[in-house]
Design a protein around this nucleic acid. Structure first.
Length: 513
RNA sequence: GCCAGGGUAGCUCAGUGGUAGAGCAGAGGACUCAUAAGCCUUUGGUCGGCAGUUCAAAUCUGCCCCUUGGCACCA
């Protein structure tokens, strides 16, 4: 069996509710996953939930619940988000699952046996109130803020993972693999970090301080902490220790936010894998953040808008389109309701939705609800086909280079070209003529509009899967299963039945006041 | 402080040496198949600032300013 295209998001931390950032990462990953499926890859797409740790334990205690109960609630929320967004993940991993505990313990034991883990004393400043270690960085004006309460220096024995001995290897690996981290400039952050000597990584917490974690296999007085729990999910979900593993690992892409590249994903994780003798993931796709999500958009309406409400208000596809169109992968982007509305109305409703609407309507009125044959090929047709040719040429490289915002821009610029073509041919005028030449032009124009629309939605499909399928059905096309030949201008729609006139993206009612 | 990303029309962005671009928003017009949509025309920029290299710089170099991140046990 051929290796699958294995792609992951970061797993979300269970101590909080989903927000725009979570939604975006899932959409971004899903777009890539769906694109690869169209390219013919067998895809294994995993997302999940990181459930252990101090914060979850404390939240549970505050709520008077068992930690697992809290996690179960949060898991429902996050999985619900995936459904709402029509994320096509093949697996959802939760770090409290038995399959994961087993892998974490096996990996820890393995490293312990190899001498990569040792026990040592760790001295630090501990905040009793927050039940966590604090560092000099947390100090404000030379004092720890009030929220930490009394901070005392304590010495604690813990287990450490040897990072330093792999440092040179890691620097080499990153320097010699330019495609390892996208965008490339992020590699510089990692290499800068690696200019300083690495300290070993503390991977345990004593059980009396933290119960909510996976027990160290070689010392039941401790649980493992954070990274050995969270990062290992990627190989758990790949089926580490089972036959499935070879079909999945190495991951083709870990899609993550820029905040967790250095040091966890670009330093700890590669070293963990290297120490275990496992292959590294092939690429990291590092995205930026949505800024001002919340406060800023309340200005005009006076009401705070939760970006995730837009999914229900305007559909998953519209939401997916917006975040994909607006975000230049790797950079940050500004979220505002105004921008969402502008995209929705201008691009989706006016350009795409209305184009389909006028085609279906004219097909019903002039050609008995069928896609007619294109019988002539004159300047307007040739121009439109040329425009498509140059559009198609750009799309694959843009998709391959994660330039989704520009790919969408290009597609919508072609859609605009179809609208322009319609004005040039003006089938509604031709319909009033008895001249056979006008009749031929009328039929040709509707055929060309339908074909051009079909071509437009092919590479809209990864971003707007439902809408794209809907468009295909309405113009008499079959469901899309691959890219093969789909981007070539042809006459496959000839004679196909057009659907009833449909409003794809209804204009929202203008709310009074 | 050091490193990196961004700073181009009101907004979002494209544009890496050769007379400043797109979409949206604004203004005007013709049309009517269509979701008061679409189409045509148009207003609008000392390309963050200063200096330098060059016949020529948004594009190369230096310094500065604004902004977003990274800079070891922090999720």
């Amino acid at each position: 069996m051929a290796k699958k295209f294995y792609i992951t998001t970061a797993i979300d931390y269970a101590n909080g509710s989903p927000h725009l950032g979570h939604a975006y990462e899932k959409v971004l990953t899903d777009v890539l996953a769906r694109y690869r499926r169209l390219q013919g890859d067998e895809v294994h797409f995993v997302t999940g939930l990181d459930e252990h740790g101090q914060k979850v334990q404390m939240s549970a205690r505050k709520a008077g619940l068992e930690p697992q109960a809290i996690c179960d609630q949060v898991a429902v929320e996050f999985q619900g988000l995936c459904q709402r967004l029509e994320i096509s993940n093949d697996d959802y991993i939760r770090t409290t699952e038995a399959r994961h505990k087993k892998v974490v313990q096996s990996v820890l034991q393995d490293l312990y046996d190899r001498g990569e883990i040792y026990k040592a004393e760790y001295a630090g400043f501990y905040s009793q109130r927050q039940e966590q270690f604090v560092t000099e960085k947390e100090k404000v004006d030379g004092e720890w803020p009030e929220i930490y309460g009394e901070v005392e220096e304590v010495i604690e024995t813990n287990y450490f993972f040897k990072l330093a001995q792999h440092q040179d290897w890691l620097v080499d690996t990153i320097e010699n693999n330019e495609a390892f981290i996208y965008p490339r400039f992020r590699s510089a952050d990692v290499l800068q970090f690696l200019k300083e000597p690495l300290n070993d990584l503390c991977i345990s917490r004593p059980r009396e301080r933290l119960q909510w974690g996976i027990e160290l296999p070689f010392d039941s007085e401790y649980v493992t902490y954070v990274w050995f729990d969270a990062l290992v999910n990627y190989i758990t979900a790949a089926g580490y220790g089972t036959d499935a593993y070879a079909d999945h690992w190495p991951a083709d892409f870990h899609v993550i936010g820029k905040d967790i590249l250095v040091p966890p994903h670009a330093v700890y994780w590669p070293i963990m894998l290297h120490a275990l003798g496992l292959e590294l993931p092939r690429h990291f796709l590092v995205h930026g953040w949505w800024l001002s999500s919340g406060a800023k958009m309340s200005k005009s309406t006076g009401a705070v808008v939760n970006p995730l409400d837009l999914i229900e208000q305007h559909g998953a596809d519209a939401f997916r389109y917006f975040v994909t169109r607006e975000m230049n992968v790797g950079q940050d982007s500004e979220f505002s309701l105004e921008r969402f509305t502008a995209r929705y109305n201008s691009d989706l409703a006016n350009d795409l939705g209305n184009l389909l609407s006028r085609l279906l309507n004219m097909g019903g009125r002039y050609t008995e609800g069928r896609v007619p044959a294109a019988t002539i090929d004159e300047a307007p047709e040739q121009e439109l086909k040329q425009l498509w040719e140059s559009t198609a040429k750009e799309l694959i490289p843009l998709y391959d280079g994660f330039q989704y915002h520009r790919a969408l821009e290009t597609i919508f610029s072609f859609l605009s070209g179809i609208n322009r073509y319609a004005e040039t041919r003006a089938p509604w005028k031709l319909a009033k003529s008895e001249d056979p030449a006008d009749r031929a032009a009328l039929e040709t124009s509707l055929a060309c509009m339908a074909e051009a629309l079909r071509l437009s939605v092919v590479l809209l499909t990864p971003v707007m899967p439902t809408i794209s399928e809907k468009v295909r059905a309405l113009i008499g096309d079959e469901a899309l299963t691959g890219l093969d030949g789909q981007l070539d201008w042809g006459d496959r729609l000839e004679g196909k039945t057009l659907g009833e006139k449909t409003i794809l993206f209804p204009r929202p009612e203008r709310s009074a006041g």
